[in-house]
């Protein structure tokens, strides 16, 4: 599994650096920020999981909650 993870890290870095190699067609200015899609995707996913974890405290119920 570790190889898998480090492979992934490698790919991520390569892709991030890829931003330097071409001219980005951006409609919005933020798109042209360096590695925008990379770090935006990362932050989003972390935020998603953390928020969802908090949400669980509110919405999680026992499996037979609805009783059927």
């Amino acid at each position: 599994m570790d190889q898998f993870f480090y492979g992934l890290v490698g790919i991520c870095i390569v892709l991030l650096l890829g931003d330097l190699l071409y001219h980005k067609h951006a409609t919005f200015s933020f798109e042209s920020w360096f590695g925008f899609f990379a770090w935006y995707g990362f932050i989003c996913c972390v935020a998603l999981v953390l928020l969802a974890k908090q949400m669980r405290k509110v919405v999680k119920r026992d499996e037979d909650y609805y009783g059927d």
């Binding site: 892709l15 899609f37 990379a38 770090w39 990362f42 989003c44």
Partner: peptide, 27 residues
């Protein structure tokens, strides 16, 4: 980029144990 870094985030979270486990529950 988007996909790979998302995957990275998932991996990091799972490895650090932050990722919420699958639990028998209803939401």
């Amino acid at each position: 980029q988007l996909l790979a870094w998302s995957a990275l985030a998932f991996s990091v979270l799972v490895r650090t144990g932050i990722y919420p486990p699958e639990l028998r529950s209803v939401n």
